[in-house]
Design a protein around this nucleic acid. Sequence first.
DNA 1: TTGAAAGCGCTAACAT
DNA 2: ATGTTAGCGCTTTCAA
Lengths: 364, 364
Amino acid sequence: MRYSMHMGFHDGDASQREAGARGAVKGRATMRDVAKRAGVSLKTVSRVVNEEPGVSAATIAIVTAAMDELSFQRDLLAGSLRRQDRRSDSIGLIVAGVDNPFDAIIHRAAEDAAAANHVAVFAASTNEEIERERSLVRAFTSRRVDGLIIMPCGRDQSYLEPELTAGTPIIMVDRPPVGVAADCVISDHQNAAKLAVEHLLAAGHTRIAFLGDLSHIASLQARKDGYLEAMQAAGVTVDPELMAIDNHSENAALGTALRMISSAHPPTAIFSAQNRVTQGVVRALYERNVHKKIALVSFDDFPLADMLNPAVTVVAQDPYTIGRLAAERVFERLENPKLPVKTITVPARLVRRGSGEIPPPADE
Amino acid sequence: MRYSMHMGFHDGDASQREAGARGAVKGRATMRDVAKRAGVSLKTVSRVVNEEPGVSAATIAIVTAAMDELSFQRDLLAGSLRRQDRRSDSIGLIVAGVDNPFDAIIHRAAEDAAAANHVAVFAASTNEEIERERSLVRAFTSRRVDGLIIMPCGRDQSYLEPELTAGTPIIMVDRPPVGVAADCVISDHQNAAKLAVEHLLAAGHTRIAFLGDLSHIASLQARKDGYLEAMQAAGVTVDPELMAIDNHSENAALGTALRMISSAHPPTAIFSAQNRVTQGVVRALYERNVHKKIALVSFDDFPLADMLNPAVTVVAQDPYTIGRLAAERVFERLENPKLPVKTITVPARLVRRGSGEIPPPADE
DNA sequence: TTGAAAGCGCTAACAT
DNA sequence: ATGTTAGCGCTTTCAA
């Protein structure tokens, strides 16, 4: 019923005639429509809408009434086209997956910071696909977002150079950019990973497995380096059998962990370098009933980690702070485009919960 | 360094002079810039950009080269302003919290469906605040989104009438709209809740507690109705002490559950009507060490529910399908605005995992 | 205090 | 195969 009623405006002959005269049978009222109805000029309506000074109270009342009658809503897109600063009052957020809890918290933080600036957030997922990262950047910049927050998955972000030159603030999160100088908000992956592995080493473990996700992600490399650094510093030789990367899914990690656990020389501890990977490892440990025998430390916290048995010891990052700082940096850079490029490190901390405190077997 | 280089274009005298002539020291190349550089008309550039037929291969090559040299990127916002259909190729998604796992999966599904249509997604969170819901709708419609997917939190969505009249497709998810006729994609909350409670009743429970989140959310009401219906049908009188709604956070639910468990007449089973509430209940059960004594069924699945001890029996909804169908409905309605309003029900199913199969104590 | 005219970057309609 | 003109809904500039 509603959809067959094609007159876009509320009742009232005048507005219907106007709409008809413009050939439109449906659509939204414009400032011109409001101006005509209120008997004032377009510019006066603009002044009222933008709350500019120099309009008499009486005129404001007339214009406001006309706006209400026509359900007028200003078109921000059209406005930004002509506006001096050309701001669209929108930013783009590109993460690995908007449904990953870590990414989702970054998203929420960015949204909160953006909302405080009357800015809307486009959000999208790369799915860790390099081509998708590029096409999402194109999709957002061609919509003239005022800034971009990117969790880069590719090996090279030099393709962003023209955007940077055009003045679009671009802030990387969670992973440093490669091939381009851009702001970055990030955990200290390498040191945090080192911390985790040192914790296991201190308990006497030497057969510490490393399970990572995709090798082309910079943060995974940093976490691996932290693992290797800690092992080397402790004088422990790394068994290549205990290093497995490119676990592209929870299921892949599950399979890898099962294989390691069942091998001739299983690890006595596992360092899992990503939240999805951890969930696969946890499943494997339970499936083989060794969850109380093999130690586990996870990079990245996850919901209910503390309710498992044993509760999972993690290196907890602070995604909300990461997202907030990234968004705030966008707005800072919008204010002052000449700011020097900066990397902001957000602390991660070891949260001891039990799984990381399981000692190695006595007969080792 | 890069930011002090104000010439918007790549090097090359011509383009710099052009930019200077237009008074711009910074910014992006426009079709006019490309046309000038390629020595063709604006319209020809437009034809190349839009891959319209009727341009010679030689001209295409010249124009393409000019575009590359100027790092031209078409402005979709400006284009949509003049285009016949006035599409912005964007949609808005409004959920309770983009960082809630359920909402995040809906988001991901909507994004996937939108991407297939070259449409970008604005996403935002109401935080269950009614005023925020309205202001987000305004924020998105004033950016001329082509459609809106809303998880309504208010008691009344009649304020959407002008948007509907203007022809914007609006699809509700998870909760039916109130006060307005709009498409809706939803689980059958009442029957699914009834199913859960019947499951507990069948095991012999009669003291079944109901813990819900915010009472002004329509789906919570439906879940409560399902609970009451099942209890009544079984001839079981509901103890008002065992019904607690308005648990606005995980912590609130934790407190409520602790109180019930410690009361003179504790429940033998708990039906928790929302995922965040469930997590509070789980913590309470563990804290009082009754997680193997008091049965629990949760409305809504959550990550690792199957790894807890006992694993949590849930009524699992299908948020990905909900989000996908909602987005698809937006595009259907964009194709054919006269479609009748429709409610799509997505099945939810009981997943038995252990916590819901704990029998009542023998001495009851 | 108010208004007229120009124009943002693009697409549409109509030339040539 | 290519170009010209108008105009989307707004902001800006300048005038009254």
